[in-house]
Design a protein around this nucleic acid. Structure first.
Length: 234
DNA sequence: GCGACAG
DNA sequence: ATCTTGTCGC
């Protein structure tokens, strides 16, 4: 089924059906590592007014190692799926894929807001998105959804595995010294090592990766009418 | 049954 | 996610 039709199909799904679809898609996950060191990393995020069905999406591409801006894609669209923990992808993926399709300069890897394999069925939004567009993705969340972990050191760069039972599903990373950690996990077509390395390279002086920060910034500008939808290359 | 629960 | 000012701590 064509991608466009799949996205329309998502909107018709009941929660139970969405979960079944995740169980099927789970078989397509690849944790094969990246072939070459990434030079371009991108961040994706969504902003919206509470109570509104309008979703404002931003994807920004940055170049390593300086994290200098390369391009951005902004799209506004309406969602028809509610926010349900564990089913975030069905709500946000449609507009993100529109932004992705508009993006000319594709990055080596895309970091999304939310989890990848650190999900009850290993199908967080980063993994789901990666499978749909067949591209390397990483999940980076500010809060935990599932799993448990040991105590974590306070220095930037330290991490512990996030596990569900005996299975490693992600990592809890101290992205900035003495600040609450972030939760990172492979999305699709990246390894756990790629996930850690890429996120570390995307960090500067803040808690969140610069990719995430820039995507958040532009999504907010779009929502507030301070930026126009469309594609821009720098 | 109760609590947890990405954005 | 978003609503919002000051304030405590490194």
């Amino acid at each position: 089924m064509p991608l466009t039709n799949r996205l329309e199909y998502y909107k018709t799904l009941a929660a139970s059906e969405a979960k079944e679809l995740q169980q099927e898609l789970k078989e397509k996950i690849s944790l094969q590592g990246l072939v070459t060191a990434p030079q371009f990393v991108a961040g994706a995020d969504i902003s919206f007014d509470r109570g509104s069905e309008l979703m404002h999406a931003a994807i920004v591409v940055l170049q390593l190692p300086a994290l200098s801006p390369v391009a951005r894609s902004l799209v506004t669209d309406e969602t028809t799926f509610p926010y349900i923990p564990g089913l975030l992808a069905f709500r946000e993926i449609p507009v993100l894929i529109k932004a992705w399709g508009q993006l000319q300069q594709k990055p080596d890897v895309l970091i999304l807001d939310g989890h990848g394999t650190a999900h009850p069925r290993r199908m967080g939004i980063a993994t789901h998105f990666g499978i749909e567009v067949d591209w390397p993705t990483i999940g980076c969340a500010k809060n935990i959804l599932t799993g448990s972990h040991d105590k974590l050191g306070l220095e930037k760069g330290e991490y512990v595995d996030l596990k569900e039972g005996e299975e490693r599903i992600g990592m809890v990373l101290r992205s900035r010294t003495n600040v609450n950690p972030i939760y990172i996990s492979p999305g699709h077509k990246v390894s756990f090592d790629d996930t850690y390395d890429t996120v570390m390279k995307s960090l500067n002086k803040y808690k969140l990766p610069e990719t995430t920060r820039q995507a958040h910034r532009w999504a907010n500008k779009l929502r507030k009418g301070e930026a126009e939808p469309g594609y821009v290359e720098y």
